[in-house]
Design a protein around this nucleic acid. Structure first.
Lengths: 213, 213, 213, 213
DNA sequence: CGTTAAGCGAGACGGTACGTCCGGTCTTTTT
DNA sequence: AAAAAGACCGGACGTACCGTCTCGCTTAACG
């Protein structure tokens, strides 16, 4: 996949029939991102309207419709932009102390905390929900937000395989789902409590299996 | 769990101030269920409107507002009703042949097939998505639709524990998530292929763990 | 032409596909008339908008679109309604003192004064202008507002013919235009001063002709 | 009347703050005139937009706003330009055969035919309508398009006065309205049939008066 | 004869209004 | 008293234009 990372806009979906992107107002773009995230946080996703975003951003509605195809699309890019801005600070990787179980538990505990941060929770939920029903957006959501994070688990598990802590015939992309997916489902669907104890348990079960040894 | 099965409506959140339920038109109710499910299947959830349901059902809008609080609520009950009608035929339980792995694989393969049936897929997705964003509905969705199915896994796993095929210190309610949640996530979020081979792998990984023995 | 004058609405164009007129809110109708006339008077016709009328009348836009097809249509009916309300008071006829010239001069002087009343001027101009460009509306405007007034001149001229003051071979419907049309044109198009002296002159010229006798 | 025919633009209202007129693109100007007239003819005045004219003329919107103040203004000048181009061919004057009645009838018959030519009808109506509602434009319309034509009647009537065919105390500027205004009104407002027979009648009535002699 | 400043095409921008759709309430009539 | 029907107020939708505002680009006039 050839990415055109030389031009600055952070991957503008490319499929939509864009007007001249070089004339685009960065000022408006940022104002729209800010307004969208703020509104979703304040009144929730369903009550966030394009008109509302435009008004709050001090922007004409057409400026939104010119560059995005839907409310969900705006929010997705706003969220991606938020992530990019945050990206500089964090070194996004799973620690490798040699103790796989401890490393996974630490990361999952951190994830639990992050998912509880209301700053992220409302827009994430909104996007996830929209992705469930709108396949195109869902795939974009997964590709741009989910997969990059999951890849970190793949890397860590492969390192564990080389260190002999994970069976060599295991597919890491599937293995990671044993603890990531349960966490995701509890968060998304409220199917159960959402705690550090829970994620610790998941890691233990996943690593050692349910069957007696 | 005490169910109030005397009033026939399948427990509609109880908080809403219902008019006299005994005078309710079953004719209209069924027509609304049918219309709602048909419309969601045909045009998708977001384009399904209360007006549309009323028109298709040959019913006044007020008749819907009288008995339900939202589009999601209508659809949830319509879907429950659908499930109840189907329930008579099937004996809903997980087989117990003594071979836990085989039994789980069989059930998960059947689940994969069922989730692909478009008759169920659109409304299920719609409800799941709504539940992600609307906590009240989400909890109802889980309690009425998800938990009863998960309980079957709990039962089967407990039997396996008694048979010595699962470690006695394992919590079955958590254990089942090792294979159910990954499947759910792949279906909801399109995070990966959705096949019999995949579910078989999940069962193997979950039972025997990722770590070498 | 069969008119259905038993139903109360003052001739609702009949051609448009009306919803159930018996359920119509008279309250809203009157509020819309009032708002439309007020706005046209205050900000002028072009800056009068359907949204503005709806807002000022405290009415949903749809309630306007349900019953009228355009801004011009609303204003025409509002104006007709205004006329009907005023109709009760005045005995609308041209006096017959036996002196045709004097009677015509009196009526035309009164017309000059009336056309200068800003209460009538703005909406009249707006309707006349719209009628110039929109033939359908123009014909309605003429039939409902103009012709009834012109008919009064026809009647007076016929009386004058019987009294021997107008040649018997004259067509009154054409004759009246000799003094009415010049007045109308000066008012509509600002083609010249608009005064009592002018209308007096018109009557003299029209009655006695341009040619020497 | 002092005309400043040295600068080529046909007297552009003078009040507007013009940029350097010597650098003006005649190419664009003509394209705009053509586009404006074509669009008004094709879709009517209200649906003719500045954007549409600019697009059709292959011109930037700003080029229109730089030189004209409104849609009506563009159309007025376009129409004047059209008239000027046609002016070369015709010798615009009313014939003087010595028979006033015959001369007037001939000219009015020709006017009837001309007003029916759709090439002129749509833009004329549009301008006339706009002038009814917009006094400034209306006065310009009258001064530039109407008065020059009416002046021809004044001239012819004065000649008739000298020849003893019109009473010497008659004001020709008012007299001409006896037959011109009725025609104008019937055309503008569809208040009656619009034919050669009608104009002939008008001339007869106007010359000889309504009263018996 | 190159510099420079205007007009120009293009079109993004903040806005306003359009005409439509639907939400949720209310009223009238029928069953 | 519930139900069918649908008018009503409100408000968001996505579109069309408004008039303003940059952007290069061309094209004269001048230094």
């Amino acid at each position: 996949m050839a990415t055109q990372k030389s031009t600055r806009p952070p991957a503008p979906a490319a499929e939509r029939p864009h007007p001249d992107a070089t004339r685009r107002s960065q000022r408006s773009r940022q104002a729209i991102y800010d307004a969208a995230l703020a509104l979703v946080g304040e009144v929730g996703y369903p009550k966030t309207t394009i008109e509302g975003i435009a008004a709050r951003a001090g922007v004409g509605k057409q400026t939104i419709y010119r560059w995005w195809s839907s409310k969900a699309d705006v929010l997705l890019e706003a969220f991606l932009d938020l992530g990019e801005q945050a990206a500089g600070q964090e070194a996004y990787a799973i620690p490798d102390t040699g103790d796989l179980a401890a490393d996974l538990k630490a990361v999952l505990r951190a994830t639990v905390d992050e998912l509880r941060d209301p700053r992220f929770e409302t827009p994430s939920r909104a996007l996830a929900a929209e992705g469930v029903v709108n396949e195109q957006l869902g795939r974009e959501f997964v590709a741009k937000l989910l997969e990059p994070s999951l890849q970190l688990y793949v890397d860590r598990l492969r390192a564990a395989q080389e260190a002999g802590q994970v069976r060599p015939d295991i597919d890491p992309r599937i293995a990671l789902e044993l603890f990531v997916s349960p966490l995701a489902q509890r968060w998304l669907q409220h199917t159960g409590p959402f705690s550090h104890a829970y994620t610790d348990t998941l890691v233990d079960y996943a690593l050692h299996g349910l069957a007696p040894r």
